[in-house]
């Protein structure tokens, strides 16, 4: 059962598309005419991206229950493997693909 009707899903997608375009266009209509962006904007622009990504990692794991079987072990093992693969090869594809396949094997056959 999907939570959205077809038109709700359509509207949701278009809202996301509109806001995504907005975030890409903001600098051009704010600072297109040689105006220098305020310091606070530059500061937030620098520090927000790494913070939001870390926030999203936690958000992705919000359904993990550490107190009952399998205690988040499939996620933990797969994340460790993703990090090791990435530090070793520095190749996004290898890390994402390797980690996802491992996770699928773990949740389908092991745990």
């Amino acid at each position: 059962m999907q939570p959205y009707t077809t038109s709700q899903a359509l509207i949701t997608i278009l809202i996301i598309a509109g806001i995504t375009f907005f975030t890409r266009a903001v600098p051009f209509f704010l600072f297109g005419k040689k105006e220098i962006p305020p310091a606070i904007v530059i500061y937030l622009g620098k520090v927000l991206p790494p913070a939001v990504i870390a926030l999203l990692v936690v958000y992705c794991l919000k359904n993990v229950s550490v107190f009952e079987y399998p205690y988040g072990l499939p996620q933990l093992i797969s994340i460790i493997v993703v990090v090791i693969l990435h530090v070793w090869k520095r190749n996004n594809l290898v890390s994402i693909f390797g980690g996802t396949v491992l996770y699928m094997i773990l949740v389908q056959y092991v745990f």
Binding site: I53, A54, I79, V82, V83, H86, I96, Y103, L106, V107
Partner: peptide, 17 residues
């Protein structure tokens, strides 16, 4: 089952980087 982990993996990769 488990393919949605691709999203987690993507963010973990960006985070590691």
């Amino acid at each position: 089952t488990g393919i949605d982990f691709a999203m987690t993996a993507l963010f973990v990769v960006i985070c590691t980087e």
